[in-house]
Write a protein that binds this DNA or RNA. Structure first.
Lengths: 219, 219
DNA sequence: CATTAATTCAAACGATCGTTTAAAACGTGC
DNA sequence: GCACGTTTTAAACGATCGTTTGAATTAATG
């Protein structure tokens, strides 16, 4: 009991504070105060502040990415001989992580943290995230190509990145978004948020490619 | 000459470093070392680190926002009695800030910084940014409504935020994006980037609203 | 129960932080 | 050249930082 408890207390406090203020603005003393544990426990259990961050991220992100891949595989097998639907691919990507917001334990902290992490340029963290996301990148890239066979690779990649930005912004600022748009943050609204994001990004993926951007590729 | 130079040196160094590593991870000593000025000069010229950040942002962001508003006004007067085109609104919003990337002095630092700032949850900074962006919000909101008269206000707001995420991600990570997509970062590619972003976001704004998201609004 | 391993604790280390202070240096106008 | 204003400078302040250390406490094992 108490053995696992200190560690979890630290992880939870760190998750909340990193999400609120960012990695660099939160000290270990902030975390241990919030967690009501001793400062040296952080080094005992995690070794360093950086490692703590990685653990905070990976403890929830790994299962999420696993679920993403499972949902995608399911969508593929459901499609069978038909073409893989873009909306199914997008849902597989968004649903697991947005569902994490409904977790009463983590609530919005974790997803806010993930949204922030996407924008963080700390080299150590980028390396770590790339490692966490490699398989997701590979599999979803292939899935997007399959769902959008007529879209050129370069355009597909750019649109994937725009989509990632839209998703990260939504994850990171969902409380601001709901306040600004006067919608509620309950469970059913979560499905609505996801649907809204799917509508927007699917619309973006399917948008006609302007002549300018296509022509310029050949120069 | 030397009178303005120290101040500008500090601003330039801060811009670059804040963009690279974020506000909290960069110390004043990092900045003055890079700028080759004395530590106390920061307080003499700017008063505090926080104020320095605001000045770094506002010195370029204000003219950009001014230009955005001017371009929008121009687009409106060009439209005359016709409906304002969504693409014109988007271009007015994106072009001035993406053009800042072509500035050899600021290059990518400033836009990367703005991209990061959108995601920063520091209360002081959010207040400051809201102040800088109020007029842009108001005018562009109206313009989007005009360009998309059939889109419900709530859906419009959500899509505006998705668009903001896509834009911020692009601003923040443009070097990663160009490397990942194997495109070049020269001037003509800038126009291409903007066009790609317009294509995607316009596609998103015009996407059909799913039944689910609409129905749920009434519960 | 004794021994060993694991965990927690308080204190300290060496470093760095934003800010302040007062003196020195420089610039300006008469 | 002098008086005054502005800017730069080096040093210091009080605080905080991540990490380390060794002792105390607790848990596990035979």
């Amino acid at each position: 009991m108490p053995k696992a408890d200190t560690k979890t207390k630290i992880l939870d406090a760190a998750e909340m504070l990193f999400a609120q203020k960012g990695f660099d603005a939160v000290s270990l003393r902030n975390i241990v105060e919030s967690a009501k544990v001793n400062l040296a426990a952080v080094h005992y259990h995690f070794g360093s502040k950086q490692t703590l961050l990685h653990k905070v991220v990976s403890r929830r992100f790994r299962p999420i990415n696993k679920e993403r891949l499972a949902m995608l595989a399911n969508a593929k097998s459901n499609a069978g001989k038909h073409k893989l639907k873009l909306e199914a691919v997008l849902e597989s990507l968004f649903l697991p992580i947005f569902r994490a917001q409904a977790n009463p334990k983590a609530g919005k902290s974790f997803t806010r943290l993930i949204g922030r992490v996407v924008f963080d340029r700390n080299a150590e963290l980028q390396k770590f995230m790339l490692n966490e996301l490699t398989e997701v990148f590979v599999e979803f890239s292939k899935a997007f190509e399959e769902a959008l066979p007529d879209l050129e690779k370069t355009d597909l990649d750019w649109r994937s990145h725009f989509m990632a930005g839209a998703m990260a912004h939504t994850l990171c600022n969902s409380d601001l978004l709901t306040r600004f748009t006067q919608t509620n943050a309950n469970d059913s609204e979560l499905e609505t948020t996801i649907q809204r994001l799917i509508d927007f990004t699917a619309g973006g993926f399917r948008a006609k490619v302007s002549k300018t951007s296509k022509t310029n590729k050949n120069t």
